[in-house]
């Protein structure tokens, strides 16, 4: 075994498994040309693979799977009918909108909208009975207009001096 074998040993298995990059492959092949020990290691891995795989290849060719499918089918059909709870759970699990549990954020968003929107929806509007009163009084010297709001107890009085201008207090 050469000193360079230790640096190539990790790559040798990758090379054998066809997992090396192009450069790594070239490196291994260059080394293999001059190293009998690594060639023997590669050969040993090939033998081991054949020993493990060949009987499996032979066995699978001889099999017929029709009867296995019949047994599988029978076992699936024989399964006791799911309860309504299981059915609902299965439906929630398989139906597309529920498959990724999108319903959790959807419900959260709906609750948030209700929480924000309900004060606006149920906000009291000013009743028709809360009417403001406007009075207009005419005299020879001044004209007066009084605006009185019932709700906030606010009164605004305008005094008009003749026809030239107006002032308010």
């Amino acid at each position: 075994m050469k000193d360079s074998c230790s640096s190539i040993s990790k790559l040798l298995e990758k090379y054998f498994d066809r997992e090396t990059t192009g450069d790594e492959g070239v490196l291994v092949e260059d080394h293999l040309r001059q190293c009998a020990a690594c060639q023997a290691q590669l050969k040993s891995m090939e033998e081991l693979r054949a020993t493990l795989r060949t009987p499996v290849d032979k066995a699978v060719q001889k099999e017929t799977f029709a009867w296995v499918w019949q047994k599988v089918e029978r076992e699936i059909q024989d399964r006791p009918k799911p309860s309504w709870r299981e059915s609902i759970r299965a439906w929630f699990g398989s139906s597309f909108p529920f498959r990724r549990r999108v319903w959790i954020p959807a419900v959260a968003a709906a609750l948030l909208i209700i929480a924000i929107g309900s004060p606006l929806l149920f906000k009291e509007t000013p009743s028709q009975t809360e009417l403001s009163i406007v009075e207009y009084v005419q005299s020879d010297t001044n004209n007066v207009m009084v605006f009185e709001s019932e709700k906030e107890n606010v009164a605004i009085i305008w005094l008009f001096e003749g026809t030239e201008g107006d002032s308010s207090t």
Binding site: M1, S9, A40, K43, S44
Partner: peptide, 10 residues
């Protein structure tokens, strides 16, 4: 599996 599969050079 020594004896059935060669162990390699190292």
């Amino acid at each position: 599996l020594r004896g059935y599969v060669k162990e390699g050079g190292k």
